[in-house]
């Protein structure tokens, strides 16, 4: 039992995965296929609900004009800034309140209260306070992102096994080492879960933020199209959201796999 070679335990099974990889794409492909069919047979009126091909052509036209790339880039910039700012503040607060009881007693109740406010209801306030420029949009995204990151960081840190911390203390680890080698890695799975959730909030908030007084971004593209009942562009924007959302999730998922390799080790054995 004790002398089994460790290599045998983690040999992965490779060949069988191929079919399972395709499975998640079956439904989207079927839906788009059915949609195209319904459009070309005239079942769906092309004016109210254009075909996938029409949407794709609209996308190509917008890309040729340069507006599509420009708007996506601008949205991505706003999203990234909001995520960085809100995420950092949320993380810092989460760590502070996770580690310091004084700070937690002082601020947690207030933060939890603020959290329950739907952050989009703050739009008028944000406009009055800091106007309608880039800072307003980035602030809204930051506020949206802050809370999931905060809550998960706090919860992650609070639920780290105190026995491990006790072991670290008695084994002579410094406070910094205890944080970086025990508390943070222990909280990381929960923090990454928060990040993944925050990425979703980031996009939804941004889209709404971009409908207020904006002349760029995907959210603007969508509302602008709505004003003129331009269904192709509206659907194109929805597809872009879906893709960006999926993309962010993919990044988060891979980050999880890389950062939490030790959890895979367990699954591989079971």
């Amino acid at each position: 039992m004790e002398n089994v070679s460790p290599v045998a335990a983690v040999t992965p099974k490779k060949k069988k995965m191929n079919w399972n990889r395709l499975l998640p794409w079956v439904l989207p492909v079927l839906i788009i296929g059915g949609w195209q069919l319904a459009s070309s047979t005239g079942f769906l009126a092309s004016k109210t609900f254009p075909s996938p091909v029409a949407v794709f052509q609209d996308g190509v036209a917008l890309a040729q004009a340069g507006t599509l790339q420009r708007n996506i880039a601008i949205s991505l910039y706003r999203a990234t800034m909001g995520l960085l700012i809100g995420g950092s503040i949320g993380f810092a607060l989460g760590v502070l309140n996770g580690v310091s009881k004084l700070s937690r007693n002082l601020t947690d109740t207030s933060i939890q209260m603020l959290r329950t406010i739907p952050h989009l209801s703050l739009i008028p306030l944000v406009i009055l306070a800091i106007g309608i420029g880039e800072p307003a949009k980035i602030s809204l995204v930051s506020i949206g992102v802050l809370f999931p990151v905060y809550i998960n960081t706090l919860h992650g840190i609070r639920s780290v096994d105190p026995n491990l911390v006790e072991m670290g203390t008695s084994y002579g680890l410094s406070k910094w080492e205890i944080f970086t080698k025990i508390i943070f890695p222990g909280a990381l799975p929960t923090i990454l879960m928060g990040l993944r959730y925050a990425l979703g909030v980031m996009w939804t908030t941004l889209i709404v933020a971009e409908t207020i007084a904006s002349d760029s971004g995907i959210g603007y593209m969508a509302t602008n199209a709505e004003d003129f009942m331009d269904m192709e562009t509206i659907i194109l924007c929805i597809v872009i959201y879906a893709l960006l959302g999926k993309l962010s999730d993919l990044i988060a998922k891979n980050l999880e796999i890389l950062a939490l390799g030790w959890r895979q080790a367990k699954e591989a054995q079971q």
Binding site: S170, K181, K266
Partner: peptide, 24 residues
């Protein structure tokens, strides 16, 4: 210098065996 061996192993799940004894 005192060291304790606990009832539960208290190994850090995110570190390898070597990292667990050198604390990285």
């Amino acid at each position: 210098v005192i060291r304790v061996m606990f009832q539960d192993d208290r190994l850090l799940p995110w570190m390898t065996v070597r990292q667990n004894i050198t604390f990285k």
